[in-house]
C-alpha cells in the first residue's frame, strides 16, 4: 500500500452498563479503514451506534474492546487534527460568530489578531461574512451549522467528523448545505466521515456508504458510490440505490 489509512478501526466493541447492571452492546466487531480524502457516509437506524462510533474516533469516548487508530496512533483523547461538527447547535452563545470560528485557533495559542483574520477567511468560505458580529441566537439553524463547519475547518483538521449536522434543518436548507459542503470539500478534499439517517443525503454526498444495523450496531454493508458529482437526484441509478439501501435498513 502506498499510503496507510488515515483512520483504522479494529474489532471495535462498545458496551454500556445500564442502571440495572446489565450490559447493552452498542457497537460490535466494527472493522473499517478510511483513506485520505475519502468522503464516507454512515447510515443506519437510530440506536445503531453510529454517533457513538464517531465520538470514539474523535476521542470523546473510549472503546470497550478493540482499537481505533488515527495515522497509525491509537486514539486515546481528542486531537486537533480530527475535527467534529455536532447535530446540536454548538456555538458559544456569548460570543459572536467571528470569535466562535476563531475558538480553536485561540486554544492553539494564536494571537487574537491573527486568529480573527484567519477566522474571517473561513467565515467567507461558508458565506457568512455579513454576520461576523452577529450572535448565534440571531442566526437561523442553517447559518449556525455553517458557522460550526467554518469553526471546525479553521483548525485545518485532516479528518472532519460530522454527526448528523443537518439533522435539525428543514428540507430545503438541508439540500443547500449539502451542495455547500461538497463545494467546500472539493477545494481541499479533507477526509470526511458523515453520519446521517437520510439515505438520500448519503448517496448525494459520499464516495462510500457504510450501512449499519442496530442492536447491536454492526456494519451490514459497504457500498461504493461511483456516480460523478454533482449527483442528479433524477438519475434512475440514484433512485435504485436509494431503494436498495432503504431495503437493507428495513430488514
Amino acid at each position: 500500500m502506498l499510503q496507510e489509512a488515515v483512520i483504522n478501526i479494529e474489532n471495535l466493541c462498545k458496551t454500556y452498563a445500564t442502571k440495572q447492571g446489565a450490559f447493552v452492546p452498542a457497537l460490535k466487531d466494527i472493522n473499517l479503514s478510511v483513506d485520505l480524502n475519502d468522503f464516507i457516509c454512515i447510515v443506519g437506524p437510530s440506536g445503531c451506534g453510529k454517533s457513538t462510533m464517531l465520538r470514539i474516533i474523535a476521542g470523546l469516548e473510549q472503546t470497550s474492546e478493540g482499537r481505533v487508530f488515527y495515522m497509525g496512533e491509537e486514539v486515546k483523547k481528542t486531537n486537533r487534527e480530527v475535527g467534529m461538527v455536532f447535530q446540536d447547535y454548538s456555538l458559544l452563545p456569548w460570543q459572536n460568530v467571528l470569535d466562535n470560528i476563531a475558538l480553536g485557533l485561540v486554544f492553539a495559542g494564536m494571537s487574537r489578531n491573527e486568529s480573527l483574520q484567519l477566522a474571517h477567511k473561513y467565515l467567507k468560505l461558508v458565506g457568512l461574512e455579513a454576520f461576523a458580529r452577529a450572535y448565534p441566537y440571531e442566526l437561523s439553524g442553517g447559518m449556525q451549522q455553517r458557522a460550526a463547519i467554518a469553526r471546525a475547518l479553521a483548525n485545518d483538521p485532516r479528518v472532519l467528523l460530522m454527526d448528523e449536522p443537518f439533522g435539525a434543518l428543514d428540507a430545503h436548507t438541508r439540500i443547500l448545505l449539502q451542495e455547500e459542503l461538497l463545494r467546500i470539500w472539493e477545494q481541499d478534499r479533507k477526509t470526511i466521515m458523515f453520519v446521517t439517517h437520510s439515505v438520500d443525503e448519503a448517496i448525494y454526498l459520499a464516495d462510500r456508504i457504510i450501512v449499519m444495523s442496530a442492536h447491536p450496531g454492526q456494519i451490514k454493508e459497504v457500498i461504493d458510490v461511483t456516480m460523478p458529482r454533482p449527483r442528479d437526484r433524477a438519475n434512475p441509478l440514484y433512485g435504485q440505490m436509494n431503494a436498495r439501501i432503504l431495503g437493507m435498513l428495513d430488514r
Binding site: 456569548w94 492553539a108 471546525a152
Partner: peptide, 27 residues
C-alpha cells in the same frame, strides 16, 4: 452547561484550563 459546548471545545483542542476559563466560567 450544555454538554455539546464542552465536547466541541475539547474536539477543537481545548485543554482543561481553556475549558474552565473560556467555556465553563462564561457559561
Amino acid at each position: 452547561v450544555r454538554k455539546v459546548l464542552l465536547d466541541s471545545a475539547r474536539v477543537l483542542g481545548a485543554n482543561e484550563k481553556d475549558i474552565f476559563r473560556l467555556i465553563l466560567l462564561p457559561a
